[in-house]
Nucleic acid binder design. Structure first.
Lengths: 262, 262
DNA sequence: ACAATAGTGTCTCTCAGACAGTATCGT
DNA sequence: ACGATACTGTCTGAGAGACACTATTGT
């Protein structure tokens, strides 16, 4: 099986897609919907569908994203977002998780990845008609980014470098990144997306530095403390010292509150 | 196969996932070597891509949307969102404008339609693999909704009727509508999307009634006036009377401020 | 002791909610 | 005159911003 030829792979894929689909359909919607008898799927234009991920993290107080260096044409050797082709038997959400794992080794982002939008301008891919669905996630850090299978290399890059045009991306990925930055700024400012950048337990100073990095401005520690603690979506634990380099009072550790009690 | 037990389904899914993965990897490696010369677009799964529009309006103070009655299988005779297949030579934005015009006669919504998101669960269309991109728009009213070509009929329906399950929609359009309602509530509450529901000139009472319909609560006229006029994105004209049924003081007319002067 | 970081108290300003009051229309 | 609608004034409480102050650590 490991030495499948290409043709056999295709056949298996189609078979498998059909198995998945029928199994899933019988579970999901056994209701309504009859398929017309002599229906011809080729009557409609067909597209490749891809998923791309904009994985944000914070490096040295700067909002950054994970890029891969493309190993194949088009744009071989250029920088691009990690992503790949959706398979018929998987949802969009499943596809982006799988592709991210394959290309970068990142796993466990099922709960973090949220959809940004679809991009389908004609000509955005020189090969053929491709519609891509972009996702956004925030992670505490990107560990050992080398363990990639498909991608020749990967790198974490300051978003300013892309926004200012100092690093060009393949396809329309510049536009996708620009949209993603806009969204993540709004979500962090007004909501709870900031916790994605932090580990399970964190101090208020860490949470504040996330807001400062994403919003690009300094925040008053006292006012931020009142805002953060007043939201009611995190809870304190016991004190601990995060080993400040120059001493200082150890900070209280917090974690996000899991479920809302009645 | 349609009578798979759950256990067998699980096993098949796991097997299939493994087959997908290994087949895909072997395919990709060979692609990397041969891509520039003879590229084969059939190497990737292909999808139909559709666009769907959730067109909101307000009827008798209730948030409502435009539905069409499907004339063809699947779901023939059922209610669905207007939409259709994207063509290769057009963008997603262009596709939804075109389809909306063809199916409902609505035109001039280029500036109003904003993308909601992509929906691509396997099995969401019983015919084949379809990924749809949903759009949202707000319009003052929906005039003479009969002039349709593809659709047998059209109707404007209270969203509560869909949310409460009293009217079932084709495909996964219930989910799309639910997501659209969430988005439009947030956008109207915190922004400028409300103007889409109004004609070129309007009174503060009209703008307030839009907010009341979308948010589902009464608003204090005095406080709403201060909030709306303080935003700086609309400007007053001369007074005029919108012919109140029981008299009353004629209200000032406003219009949205076009471009920001330096 | 000193520096450095964590955390508190307090003042002000803005703004949303509540609500009483005034202005201008139709009949 | 009266009712109805449009608009204004004012009080109050919650919360953000600014900033001085106290508390606890390491060296």
């Amino acid at each position: 099986m490991m030495t499948l030829t290409r043709g056999y792979g295709q056949i298996n894929l189609y078979l498998v897609a059909w198995v998945c689909m029928t199994a899933k359909q019988s579970r999901r919607r056994s209701d309504a919907a009859t398929v017309p008898a002599g229906y011809d799927p080729d009557a409609f234009p067909r597209f490749a569908v891809t998923v791309d991920a904009v994985v944000f993290t914070i490096v040295d107080g700067r909002l950054s994203i994970l890029l891969i260096r493309r190993g194949a044409e088009p744009y071989a050797g250029g920088w691009a977002l990690p992503g790949g082709f959706k398979q018929p038997a998987e949802s969009l959400d499943e596809a982006v998780v799988r592709e991210l794992g394959e290309e970068t080794g990142l796993a466990g982002l099922e709960r973090s990845l949220v959809q940004l939008g679809a991009y389908g301008d004609p000509g955005r891919d020189p090969r053929m008609n491709v519609v891509t669905v972009a996702y956004v996630a925030a992670v505490p850090d990107i560990p050992a980014v080398a363990g990639a299978t498909d991608a020749a290399a990967a790198e974490v890059v300051d978003v300013a470098e892309i926004a200012e045009g100092r690093r060009a991306l393949a396809f329309d990925h510049d536009q996708i990144v620009a949209d993603a930055v806009t969204v993540i700024r709004r979500e962090v400012t007004s909501g709870d997306l900031a916790y994605g950048f932090l580990p399970g337990t964190f101090t208020l100073a860490q949470l504040r530095s996330v807001h400062e990095a994403v919003r690009g401005e300094r925040l008053d520690p006292a006012n931020f403390r009142r805002w953060a603690t007043g939201r009611g979506d995190m809870e304190p634990l016991g004190r601990r010292r995060p080993a400040g380099p120059d001493g200082g009072k150890p900070a209280e550790l917090y974690r996000v509150r899991r479920a809302e009690p009645g």
